[in-house]
Design a binder for these strands. Structure first.
Lengths: 226, 226
DNA sequence: ATCCGCGTTGACGGGTTCTTGACGGCCGGG
DNA sequence: CCCGGCCGTCAAGAACCCGTCAACGCGGAT
Protein backbone atom coordinates (compact mmCIF):
# COMPACT_ATOMS: atom_id res chain seq x y z
CA UNK A 1 0.00 0.00 0.00
CA UNK A 2 1.27 3.45 -0.86
CA UNK A 3 2.10 5.62 2.12
CA UNK A 4 1.55 9.40 1.92
CA UNK A 5 2.84 11.97 4.37
CA UNK A 6 0.64 15.08 4.47
CA UNK A 7 2.23 18.15 6.03
CA UNK A 8 -0.02 21.15 6.60
CA UNK A 9 -0.96 23.37 9.51
CA UNK A 10 -4.54 23.94 8.40
CA UNK A 11 -6.68 21.19 9.91
CA UNK A 12 -9.38 21.33 7.26
CA UNK A 13 -6.87 20.75 4.47
CA UNK A 14 -5.35 17.84 6.31
CA UNK A 15 -8.77 16.40 6.93
CA UNK A 16 -9.85 16.76 3.32
CA UNK A 17 -6.67 15.12 2.09
CA UNK A 18 -6.81 12.34 4.61
CA UNK A 19 -10.36 11.45 3.62
CA UNK A 20 -9.71 11.56 -0.08
CA UNK A 21 -6.47 9.64 0.11
CA UNK A 22 -7.78 7.00 2.46
CA UNK A 23 -10.80 6.49 0.23
CA UNK A 24 -8.44 5.64 -2.61
CA UNK A 25 -6.51 3.10 -0.65
CA UNK A 26 -3.54 5.19 0.45
CA UNK A 27 -2.13 4.97 3.92
CA UNK A 28 -1.93 8.48 5.36
CA UNK A 29 0.52 9.99 7.83
CA UNK A 30 0.15 13.61 8.91
CA UNK A 31 2.25 16.35 10.44
CA UNK A 32 1.35 19.95 11.19
CA UNK A 33 4.73 21.62 11.32
CA UNK A 34 8.20 21.25 9.90
CA UNK A 35 9.84 19.53 12.82
CA UNK A 36 7.09 16.95 13.04
CA UNK A 37 7.27 16.46 9.28
CA UNK A 38 10.95 15.54 9.34
CA UNK A 39 10.39 13.21 12.26
CA UNK A 40 7.39 11.54 10.61
CA UNK A 41 9.27 11.10 7.35
CA UNK A 42 12.21 9.49 9.11
CA UNK A 43 10.07 7.12 11.11
CA UNK A 44 7.25 6.41 8.69
CA UNK A 45 9.23 6.19 5.43
CA UNK A 46 6.43 7.50 3.20
CA UNK A 47 6.39 6.84 -0.54
CA UNK A 48 5.46 10.44 -1.28
CA UNK A 49 5.21 13.71 0.68
CA UNK A 50 2.59 16.43 0.24
CA UNK A 51 4.04 19.55 1.80
CA UNK A 52 2.45 22.91 2.52
CA UNK A 53 4.98 25.70 2.33
CA UNK A 54 3.29 27.95 4.88
CA UNK A 55 4.25 26.17 8.06
CA UNK A 56 4.31 27.91 11.43
CA UNK A 57 7.76 26.93 12.65
CA UNK A 58 10.19 26.83 9.73
CA UNK A 59 10.37 27.91 6.13
CA UNK A 60 9.13 25.33 3.67
CA UNK A 61 12.33 25.17 1.70
CA UNK A 62 14.14 24.18 4.86
CA UNK A 63 11.85 21.21 5.21
CA UNK A 64 12.60 20.26 1.62
CA UNK A 65 16.31 20.59 2.27
CA UNK A 66 15.98 18.56 5.45
CA UNK A 67 14.31 15.75 3.56
CA UNK A 68 16.63 15.90 0.60
CA UNK A 69 19.59 15.42 2.86
CA UNK A 70 18.83 11.75 3.18
CA UNK A 71 15.96 10.72 0.94
CA UNK A 72 14.80 11.08 -2.66
CA UNK A 73 11.14 10.55 -1.81
CA UNK A 74 8.91 12.58 -4.18
CA UNK A 75 7.79 15.88 -2.67
CA UNK A 76 4.69 17.69 -3.91
CA UNK A 77 4.52 21.23 -2.61
CA UNK A 78 1.26 22.96 -1.81
CA UNK A 79 1.23 26.72 -1.51
CA UNK A 80 -1.09 29.69 -1.53
CA UNK A 81 1.62 31.78 -3.18
CA UNK A 82 1.26 31.98 -6.93
CA UNK A 83 4.43 33.98 -7.35
CA UNK A 84 6.75 32.42 -9.87
CA UNK A 85 9.81 33.06 -7.70
CA UNK A 86 8.39 30.90 -4.91
CA UNK A 87 7.82 28.03 -7.28
CA UNK A 88 11.33 28.26 -8.65
CA UNK A 89 12.77 28.35 -5.18
CA UNK A 90 10.86 25.31 -3.99
CA UNK A 91 11.52 23.28 -7.13
CA UNK A 92 15.22 24.09 -7.08
CA UNK A 93 15.38 23.21 -3.42
CA UNK A 94 14.41 19.68 -4.41
CA UNK A 95 10.63 19.58 -4.71
CA UNK A 96 9.16 17.47 -7.46
CA UNK A 97 5.98 19.39 -8.12
CA UNK A 98 4.25 22.57 -7.06
CA UNK A 99 0.49 23.01 -6.76
CA UNK A 100 -1.11 26.33 -5.85
CA UNK A 101 -4.04 26.58 -3.50
CA UNK A 102 -6.88 26.43 -3.96
CA UNK A 103 -6.27 23.21 -5.82
CA UNK A 104 -8.55 20.69 -7.46
CA UNK A 105 -8.48 17.40 -5.61
CA UNK A 106 -8.55 15.49 -8.89
CA UNK A 107 -5.50 17.28 -10.12
CA UNK A 108 -3.57 16.78 -6.91
CA UNK A 109 -4.37 13.10 -6.93
CA UNK A 110 -3.27 12.81 -10.54
CA UNK A 111 0.01 14.55 -9.76
CA UNK A 112 0.45 12.27 -6.80
CA UNK A 113 -0.11 9.21 -8.97
CA UNK A 114 2.42 10.55 -11.46
CA UNK A 115 5.01 11.09 -8.74
CA UNK A 116 4.51 7.63 -7.26
CA UNK A 117 4.56 5.96 -10.67
CA UNK A 118 7.86 7.60 -11.48
CA UNK A 119 9.57 6.60 -8.30
CA UNK A 120 8.30 3.03 -8.27
CA UNK A 121 8.96 2.25 -11.94
CA UNK A 122 12.51 3.54 -11.76
CA UNK A 123 13.17 1.86 -8.44
CA UNK A 124 11.94 -1.27 -10.17
CA UNK A 125 10.13 -4.21 -8.72
CA UNK A 126 6.86 -4.28 -6.83
CA UNK A 127 7.63 -7.79 -5.53
CA UNK A 128 6.36 -10.05 -8.27
CA UNK A 129 7.74 -13.27 -6.84
CA UNK A 130 5.51 -16.24 -6.15
CA UNK A 131 6.70 -19.23 -4.17
CA UNK A 132 5.41 -22.74 -3.81
CA UNK A 133 6.68 -25.70 -1.87
CA UNK A 134 8.74 -26.94 -4.79
CA UNK A 135 9.54 -23.99 -7.03
CA UNK A 136 9.71 -20.18 -7.24
CA UNK A 137 8.41 -17.97 -10.03
CA UNK A 138 9.88 -14.50 -10.60
CA UNK A 139 7.49 -12.64 -12.89
CA UNK A 140 9.71 -9.61 -13.46
CA UNK A 141 12.88 -11.51 -14.27
CA UNK A 142 10.97 -14.23 -16.09
CA UNK A 143 12.85 -16.83 -14.12
CA UNK A 144 11.82 -20.06 -12.47
CA UNK A 145 13.92 -21.59 -9.70
CA UNK A 146 13.71 -25.11 -8.40
CA UNK A 147 16.05 -26.30 -5.70
CA UNK A 148 18.00 -23.05 -6.15
CA UNK A 149 18.82 -23.86 -9.75
CA UNK A 150 17.23 -22.19 -12.71
CA UNK A 151 14.76 -24.12 -14.80
CA UNK A 152 14.69 -23.30 -18.47
CA UNK A 153 11.24 -22.68 -19.94
CA UNK A 154 10.33 -22.19 -23.58
CA UNK A 155 8.30 -19.09 -24.52
CA UNK A 156 5.04 -21.03 -24.69
CA UNK A 157 5.66 -22.79 -21.41
CA UNK A 158 6.40 -19.47 -19.77
CA UNK A 159 3.31 -17.89 -21.31
CA UNK A 160 1.06 -20.52 -19.78
CA UNK A 161 2.76 -20.44 -16.41
CA UNK A 162 2.58 -16.65 -16.29
CA UNK A 163 -1.16 -16.55 -16.96
CA UNK A 164 -1.79 -19.21 -14.34
CA UNK A 165 0.42 -17.57 -11.73
CA UNK A 166 -1.11 -14.16 -12.32
CA UNK A 167 -4.46 -15.77 -11.58
CA UNK A 168 -3.06 -17.61 -8.60
CA UNK A 169 -5.63 -19.81 -6.89
CA UNK A 170 -8.32 -19.00 -9.44
CA UNK A 171 -9.56 -21.28 -12.17
CA UNK A 172 -8.48 -20.23 -15.66
CA UNK A 173 -10.73 -21.52 -18.44
CA UNK A 174 -9.06 -23.38 -21.28
CA UNK A 175 -10.44 -20.89 -23.76
CA UNK A 176 -8.96 -17.97 -21.85
CA UNK A 177 -5.58 -19.65 -21.55
CA UNK A 178 -5.49 -20.48 -25.25
CA UNK A 179 -6.54 -17.00 -26.25
CA UNK A 180 -3.94 -15.31 -24.07
CA UNK A 181 -1.04 -17.50 -25.08
CA UNK A 182 -1.75 -18.48 -28.68
CA UNK A 183 -4.22 -15.80 -29.74
CA UNK A 184 -7.98 -15.69 -30.27
CA UNK A 185 -7.85 -17.99 -33.32
CA UNK A 186 -6.69 -20.95 -31.23
CA UNK A 187 -9.44 -20.90 -28.63
CA UNK A 188 -10.41 -24.52 -29.28
CA UNK A 189 -7.01 -26.20 -29.57
CA UNK A 190 -7.28 -27.84 -26.19
CA UNK A 191 -4.75 -30.44 -27.17
CA UNK A 192 -1.98 -27.83 -26.97
CA UNK A 193 -2.78 -27.33 -23.33
CA UNK A 194 -2.49 -30.99 -22.52
CA UNK A 195 0.92 -31.21 -24.14
CA UNK A 196 2.30 -28.11 -22.48
CA UNK A 197 0.82 -28.69 -19.07
CA UNK A 198 2.48 -32.09 -19.11
CA UNK A 199 5.80 -30.46 -19.96
CA UNK A 200 5.42 -27.87 -17.23
CA UNK A 201 4.61 -30.53 -14.68
CA UNK A 202 7.58 -32.59 -15.74
CA UNK A 203 9.81 -29.57 -15.20
CA UNK A 204 8.27 -28.18 -12.05
CA UNK A 205 6.30 -30.75 -10.11
CA UNK A 206 8.11 -33.13 -7.75
CA UNK A 207 5.73 -35.86 -8.89
CA UNK A 208 4.52 -34.97 -12.39
CA UNK A 209 1.86 -37.63 -12.48
CA UNK A 210 0.38 -36.34 -9.23
CA UNK A 211 0.42 -32.55 -9.66
CA UNK A 212 0.12 -30.39 -6.58
CA UNK A 213 0.42 -26.91 -8.05
CA UNK A 214 -0.68 -27.14 -11.66
CA UNK A 215 -4.13 -28.58 -11.24
CA UNK A 216 -6.51 -29.78 -13.93
CA UNK A 217 -10.18 -29.04 -13.46
CA UNK A 218 -11.72 -31.55 -15.88
CA UNK A 219 -13.91 -29.96 -18.51
CA UNK A 220 -13.23 -26.45 -17.26
CA UNK A 221 -9.63 -25.40 -17.19
CA UNK A 222 -6.51 -25.23 -15.08
CA UNK A 223 -5.56 -23.68 -11.78
CA UNK A 224 -2.29 -22.70 -10.10
CA UNK A 225 -2.18 -23.53 -6.41
CA UNK A 226 0.66 -21.83 -4.42
CA UNK B 1 24.83 18.47 -22.17
CA UNK B 2 21.12 18.06 -21.50
CA UNK B 3 19.05 17.53 -24.61
CA UNK B 4 15.49 18.90 -24.71
CA UNK B 5 12.85 18.06 -27.29
CA UNK B 6 10.32 20.88 -27.72
CA UNK B 7 7.07 19.90 -29.42
CA UNK B 8 4.70 22.73 -30.33
CA UNK B 9 2.94 23.92 -33.46
CA UNK B 10 3.18 27.62 -32.57
CA UNK B 11 6.42 28.97 -33.99
CA UNK B 12 6.72 31.82 -31.50
CA UNK B 13 6.54 29.44 -28.54
CA UNK B 14 9.13 27.18 -30.07
CA UNK B 15 11.34 30.15 -30.77
CA UNK B 16 11.01 31.54 -27.26
CA UNK B 17 11.81 28.18 -25.72
CA UNK B 18 14.68 27.51 -28.04
CA UNK B 19 16.30 30.84 -27.21
CA UNK B 20 15.83 30.50 -23.47
CA UNK B 21 16.95 26.90 -23.34
CA UNK B 22 19.97 27.41 -25.56
CA UNK B 23 21.01 30.41 -23.47
CA UNK B 24 21.12 28.12 -20.44
CA UNK B 25 23.26 25.54 -22.11
CA UNK B 26 20.63 23.06 -23.20
CA UNK B 27 20.75 21.38 -26.56
CA UNK B 28 17.37 21.86 -28.24
CA UNK B 29 15.50 19.67 -30.70
CA UNK B 30 12.12 20.74 -32.06
CA UNK B 31 9.09 19.18 -33.71
CA UNK B 32 5.85 20.81 -34.75
CA UNK B 33 3.48 17.84 -34.80
CA UNK B 34 2.99 14.49 -33.14
CA UNK B 35 4.47 12.31 -35.85
CA UNK B 36 7.60 14.40 -36.03
CA UNK B 37 7.81 14.37 -32.24
CA UNK B 38 7.88 10.58 -32.04
CA UNK B 39 10.44 10.43 -34.81
CA UNK B 40 12.62 13.09 -33.23
CA UNK B 41 12.45 11.37 -29.86
CA UNK B 42 13.48 8.05 -31.34
CA UNK B 43 16.38 9.51 -33.27
CA UNK B 44 17.54 12.28 -30.98
CA UNK B 45 17.12 10.57 -27.59
CA UNK B 46 16.29 13.71 -25.59
CA UNK B 47 16.72 13.81 -21.82
CA UNK B 48 13.38 15.56 -21.40
CA UNK B 49 10.39 16.39 -23.62
CA UNK B 50 8.30 19.57 -23.52
CA UNK B 51 5.04 18.72 -25.24
CA UNK B 52 2.19 20.99 -26.28
CA UNK B 53 -1.11 19.13 -26.14
CA UNK B 54 -2.76 21.11 -28.94
CA UNK B 55 -1.02 19.58 -31.91
CA UNK B 56 -2.50 19.67 -35.41
CA UNK B 57 -2.22 16.01 -36.34
CA UNK B 58 -2.88 13.80 -33.32
CA UNK B 59 -4.21 14.06 -29.80
CA UNK B 60 -1.57 14.91 -27.25
CA UNK B 61 -2.26 11.88 -25.08
CA UNK B 62 -1.51 9.68 -28.06
CA UNK B 63 1.91 11.23 -28.32
CA UNK B 64 2.44 10.54 -24.64
CA UNK B 65 1.36 6.95 -25.13
CA UNK B 66 3.61 6.62 -28.14
CA UNK B 67 6.58 7.74 -26.13
CA UNK B 68 5.73 5.72 -23.07
CA UNK B 69 5.66 2.60 -25.17
CA UNK B 70 9.42 2.48 -25.20
CA UNK B 71 10.94 5.21 -23.07
CA UNK B 72 10.62 6.68 -19.60
CA UNK B 73 11.98 10.08 -20.59
CA UNK B 74 10.36 12.86 -18.50
CA UNK B 75 7.49 14.59 -20.31
CA UNK B 76 6.36 18.09 -19.35
CA UNK B 77 3.03 18.95 -20.91
CA UNK B 78 2.14 22.45 -22.02
CA UNK B 79 -1.48 23.30 -22.61
CA UNK B 80 -3.86 26.20 -22.93
CA UNK B 81 -6.57 24.12 -21.28
CA UNK B 82 -6.91 24.80 -17.58
CA UNK B 83 -9.59 22.20 -17.11
CA UNK B 84 -8.76 19.77 -14.35
CA UNK B 85 -9.92 16.77 -16.40
CA UNK B 86 -7.37 17.50 -19.08
CA UNK B 87 -4.60 17.57 -16.54
CA UNK B 88 -5.68 14.30 -15.02
CA UNK B 89 -5.89 12.66 -18.41
CA UNK B 90 -2.43 13.78 -19.47
CA UNK B 91 -0.80 12.88 -16.16
CA UNK B 92 -2.41 9.47 -16.07
CA UNK B 93 -1.36 8.86 -19.65
CA UNK B 94 2.22 9.10 -18.45
CA UNK B 95 3.13 12.78 -18.37
CA UNK B 96 5.36 13.94 -15.53
CA UNK B 97 4.18 17.52 -15.20
CA UNK B 98 1.53 19.82 -16.59
CA UNK B 99 1.96 23.56 -17.14
CA UNK B 100 -0.85 25.80 -18.38
CA UNK B 101 -0.30 28.55 -20.90
CA UNK B 102 0.47 31.31 -20.57
CA UNK B 103 3.34 30.13 -18.44
CA UNK B 104 6.22 31.90 -16.77
CA UNK B 105 9.49 30.98 -18.37
CA UNK B 106 11.18 30.87 -14.98
CA UNK B 107 8.66 28.38 -13.71
CA UNK B 108 8.90 26.16 -16.75
CA UNK B 109 12.67 26.12 -16.51
CA UNK B 110 12.48 25.24 -12.83
CA UNK B 111 10.08 22.38 -13.55
CA UNK B 112 12.39 21.24 -16.30
CA UNK B 113 15.35 21.24 -13.94
CA UNK B 114 13.33 19.28 -11.41
CA UNK B 115 12.34 16.68 -14.01
CA UNK B 116 15.90 16.25 -15.25
CA UNK B 117 17.30 16.08 -11.73
CA UNK B 118 14.83 13.36 -10.83
CA UNK B 119 15.54 11.20 -13.82
CA UNK B 120 19.31 11.45 -13.53
CA UNK B 121 19.57 10.90 -9.80
CA UNK B 122 17.10 8.03 -9.70
CA UNK B 123 18.76 6.36 -12.67
CA UNK B 124 22.18 6.96 -11.18
CA UNK B 125 21.46 5.60 -7.77
CA UNK B 126 22.39 2.09 -6.96
CA UNK B 127 25.80 0.83 -7.92
CA UNK B 128 27.07 2.41 -11.13
CA UNK B 129 29.73 -0.29 -11.32
CA UNK B 130 28.78 -3.89 -12.00
CA UNK B 131 31.29 -6.69 -11.78
CA UNK B 132 31.29 -10.21 -13.08
CA UNK B 133 33.84 -12.96 -12.90
CA UNK B 134 35.42 -11.89 -16.15
CA UNK B 135 34.72 -8.21 -16.72
CA UNK B 136 33.62 -4.95 -15.05
CA UNK B 137 31.09 -2.45 -16.36
CA UNK B 138 31.19 1.16 -15.21
CA UNK B 139 27.85 2.70 -16.16
CA UNK B 140 28.77 6.23 -15.18
CA UNK B 141 32.11 6.31 -16.99
CA UNK B 142 30.80 4.25 -19.90
CA UNK B 143 33.79 1.96 -19.64
CA UNK B 144 34.33 -1.76 -19.63
CA UNK B 145 37.37 -3.37 -18.07
CA UNK B 146 38.61 -6.88 -18.64
CA UNK B 147 41.78 -8.12 -16.99
CA UNK B 148 42.41 -4.53 -15.85
CA UNK B 149 42.58 -3.28 -19.41
CA UNK B 150 39.90 -1.26 -21.09
CA UNK B 151 37.80 -2.90 -23.78
CA UNK B 152 36.69 -0.65 -26.59
CA UNK B 153 32.98 -0.88 -27.42
CA UNK B 154 31.18 0.76 -30.31
CA UNK B 155 28.17 2.96 -29.48
CA UNK B 156 25.70 0.24 -30.43
CA UNK B 157 27.53 -2.41 -28.45
CA UNK B 158 27.54 -0.14 -25.45
CA UNK B 159 23.85 0.62 -25.86
CA UNK B 160 22.96 -3.04 -25.69
CA UNK B 161 25.26 -3.79 -22.79
CA UNK B 162 23.93 -0.83 -20.84
CA UNK B 163 20.31 -1.87 -21.19
CA UNK B 164 21.14 -5.42 -20.17
CA UNK B 165 23.25 -4.39 -17.20
CA UNK B 166 20.63 -1.95 -15.97
CA UNK B 167 18.22 -4.87 -15.94
CA UNK B 168 20.74 -7.14 -14.33
CA UNK B 169 19.39 -10.63 -13.77
CA UNK B 170 16.13 -9.84 -15.48
CA UNK B 171 15.13 -11.02 -18.89
CA UNK B 172 15.00 -8.23 -21.46
CA UNK B 173 12.70 -8.94 -24.39
CA UNK B 174 14.23 -8.60 -27.83
CA UNK B 175 11.59 -6.03 -28.72
CA UNK B 176 12.45 -3.90 -25.73
CA UNK B 177 16.14 -4.10 -26.44
CA UNK B 178 15.65 -3.13 -30.06
CA UNK B 179 13.33 -0.27 -29.19
CA UNK B 180 15.66 1.15 -26.60
CA UNK B 181 18.82 0.89 -28.65
CA UNK B 182 17.69 1.44 -32.25
CA UNK B 183 14.31 3.11 -31.73
CA UNK B 184 10.68 1.95 -31.98
CA UNK B 185 10.84 1.45 -35.76
CA UNK B 186 13.34 -1.38 -35.42
CA UNK B 187 11.36 -3.53 -33.02
CA UNK B 188 11.47 -6.58 -35.27
CA UNK B 189 15.06 -6.50 -36.52
CA UNK B 190 16.10 -9.42 -34.37
CA UNK B 191 19.03 -10.13 -36.64
CA UNK B 192 20.81 -7.05 -35.33
CA UNK B 193 20.73 -8.52 -31.87
CA UNK B 194 22.30 -11.76 -32.97
CA UNK B 195 25.17 -9.95 -34.66
CA UNK B 196 25.85 -7.60 -31.77
CA UNK B 197 25.44 -10.11 -29.02
CA UNK B 198 28.00 -12.24 -30.81
CA UNK B 199 30.38 -9.28 -30.92
CA UNK B 200 29.85 -8.48 -27.27
CA UNK B 201 30.48 -12.06 -26.29
CA UNK B 202 33.63 -12.17 -28.37
CA UNK B 203 34.89 -9.11 -26.56
CA UNK B 204 33.75 -9.91 -23.04
CA UNK B 205 33.15 -13.60 -22.50
CA UNK B 206 36.08 -15.89 -21.68
CA UNK B 207 34.47 -18.54 -23.85
CA UNK B 208 32.30 -16.76 -26.42
CA UNK B 209 30.65 -19.91 -27.66
CA UNK B 210 29.61 -20.80 -24.12
CA UNK B 211 28.41 -17.50 -22.65
CA UNK B 212 28.10 -17.21 -18.90
CA UNK B 213 27.00 -13.60 -18.52
CA UNK B 214 25.24 -12.64 -21.72
CA UNK B 215 22.60 -15.32 -21.88
CA UNK B 216 20.17 -16.02 -24.70
CA UNK B 217 16.66 -17.07 -23.84
CA UNK B 218 15.45 -18.50 -27.14
CA UNK B 219 12.34 -16.85 -28.46
CA UNK B 220 12.16 -14.39 -25.60
CA UNK B 221 15.21 -12.20 -25.21
CA UNK B 222 18.52 -11.82 -23.45
CA UNK B 223 19.66 -11.69 -19.87
CA UNK B 224 22.74 -10.35 -18.11
CA UNK B 225 23.93 -12.55 -15.25
CA UNK B 226 26.48 -10.97 -12.88
C1' DA C 1 42.18 9.98 -52.51
C1' DT C 2 42.59 6.24 -49.34
C1' DC C 3 41.92 3.77 -45.22
C1' DC C 4 39.53 2.29 -41.26
C1' DG C 5 35.75 1.73 -38.01
C1' DC C 6 31.09 0.91 -37.79
C1' DG C 7 26.44 -0.40 -38.98
C1' DT C 8 23.75 -3.10 -42.06
C1' DT C 9 22.46 -7.09 -44.72
C1' DG C 10 22.59 -11.81 -46.80
C1' DA C 11 23.54 -16.82 -46.59
C1' DC C 12 24.03 -21.09 -44.21
C1' DG C 13 24.39 -24.83 -40.66
C1' DG C 14 22.82 -26.54 -36.36
C1' DG C 15 19.92 -26.71 -32.61
C1' DT C 16 15.54 -25.91 -30.28
C1' DT C 17 10.69 -25.43 -30.19
C1' DC C 18 6.05 -25.99 -32.02
C1' DT C 19 2.69 -28.63 -34.05
C1' DT C 20 0.42 -32.72 -35.04
C1' DG C 21 -0.90 -37.46 -34.89
C1' DA C 22 -1.34 -41.88 -32.44
C1' DC C 23 -2.21 -44.54 -28.32
C1' DG C 24 -3.85 -45.79 -23.67
C1' DG C 25 -6.22 -44.78 -19.15
C1' DC C 26 -10.19 -43.03 -16.66
C1' DC C 27 -15.05 -42.19 -16.11
C1' DG C 28 -19.99 -41.70 -16.78
C1' DG C 29 -23.89 -42.96 -19.67
C1' DG C 30 -26.30 -45.90 -22.84
C1' DC D 1 -20.54 -54.37 -21.08
C1' DC D 2 -19.30 -51.19 -24.53
C1' DC D 3 -18.69 -46.59 -26.05
C1' DG D 4 -17.63 -41.71 -26.42
C1' DG D 5 -15.56 -37.73 -24.17
C1' DC D 6 -11.62 -36.04 -21.84
C1' DC D 7 -7.09 -36.25 -20.35
C1' DG D 8 -2.05 -37.51 -20.21
C1' DT D 9 1.98 -39.36 -22.72
C1' DC D 10 5.13 -40.07 -26.42
C1' DA D 11 7.31 -39.32 -30.72
C1' DA D 12 8.51 -37.28 -35.26
C1' DG D 13 8.64 -33.90 -38.86
C1' DA D 14 8.10 -29.06 -39.77
C1' DA D 15 8.93 -24.48 -38.64
C1' DC D 16 11.43 -21.35 -36.37
C1' DC D 17 15.34 -19.23 -34.06
C1' DC D 18 20.13 -18.55 -33.15
C1' DG D 19 25.14 -18.01 -33.98
C1' DT D 20 28.58 -17.26 -37.33
C1' DC D 21 30.96 -15.56 -41.27
C1' DA D 22 31.46 -12.45 -44.83
C1' DA D 23 30.47 -8.71 -47.88
C1' DC D 24 28.88 -4.05 -48.71
C1' DG D 25 28.31 0.99 -48.04
C1' DC D 26 28.92 4.99 -45.61
C1' DG D 27 31.33 8.65 -43.15
C1' DG D 28 35.21 10.52 -40.74
C1' DA D 29 40.12 10.62 -40.20
C1' DT D 30 44.74 10.38 -42.25
Amino acid sequence: MTKVLVVDDEPQIVRALRINLAARGYQVLTAHDGAAALKAAAEGRPDVVVLDLGLPDVDGTEVIAGLRGWTTVPIIVLSARTDSADKVEALDAGADDYVTKPFGMDELLARLRAAVRRSTTSAGDGEPVVKTASFTVDLAAKKVLRDDTEVHLTPTEWGILEVLVRNSGRLVAQKQLLKEVWGPAYATETHYLRVYLAQLRRKLEPEPSRPRHLITEPGMGYRFEP
